[in-house]
Amino acid sequence: MTAQVITVTSGKGGVGKTTAVANLATALAADGRKVVCIDGDIGLRNLDVVMGLENRIVYDIVDVIEGRCKLRQAMIRDKHHPELYLIPAAQTRDKNAVSPSDMIRICNDLRADYDFVVIDSPAGIERGFRNSIAAADRVLVVTNPEVSAVRDADRVIGILEAEEKGNPALILNRLNPVMVKQHDMLSAEDVLDLLAIQLIGIVPEDENVIVGSNRGTPVVLDPKSRAGQAFRNIAKRLQGQDVPFMDLDKGTGLWNRIQKITGRK
């Protein structure tokens, strides 16, 4: 076994990175994969609450790096899946407590025993972002169909290209098919044309996402949620399966065009 390290990042904050990590990690574990997720947002720990694991934290990633505990001791087992673990971020104000080589070392330590390591990057292009991409085999960039989020995503994609981090793939989150139909929101087609990178999934705006975060139960565990379905599909694509894109907007022909665009890439 040799884990694939997947980093989820964005330019702009609040676009859904932590939501994506919690859901993709849970969906991968539900598919029987051994998964560790790492909260790379030092000082702004969040993945623990979104996954509902905040009460189980004893050690965090800085404790591992500074030798106060072993890596395995800082790994919190998920409530729903025994083969899913979380390594929480520290709430320390010292963001320099973690370096890119620390992240590489931790990920290399995990590679032999797990299928996937999923890293939640902080927003922006600073230290935490550099740490989070250091060990990545694959980077997923999350954006929303909105001008500032798309602009900042483009900036991050440019940096990833310059650092030769392979081809990043795009998660377009919070798409509202009704607004797209009314031409009040950028369509998936528009965003793909602008950013010109490979698409790995489109997640609709869905209030169940917020309900799930409130409960500490990622929305992929809700079989009826549209966003949950979208994240389950992305998890399948990460495992190398060819899953067709969901028809978020039946009957407009829009989706057929998207299929064509992405099929060509």
Binding site: E146, R155, D184, L186
Partner: peptide, 27 residues
């Protein structure tokens, strides 16, 4: 549905503005 119906749609305007901004950001 669109009060400013003579105007460009919000989506078109977003796309056109982004096309320009990205070209300059990237270079």
């Amino acid at each position: 549905m669109n009060f400013f119906s003579r105007k460009k749609s919000a989506a078109t305007s977003a796309k056109e503005r982004l096309q320009l901004v990205l070209v300059h950001d990237r270079t």
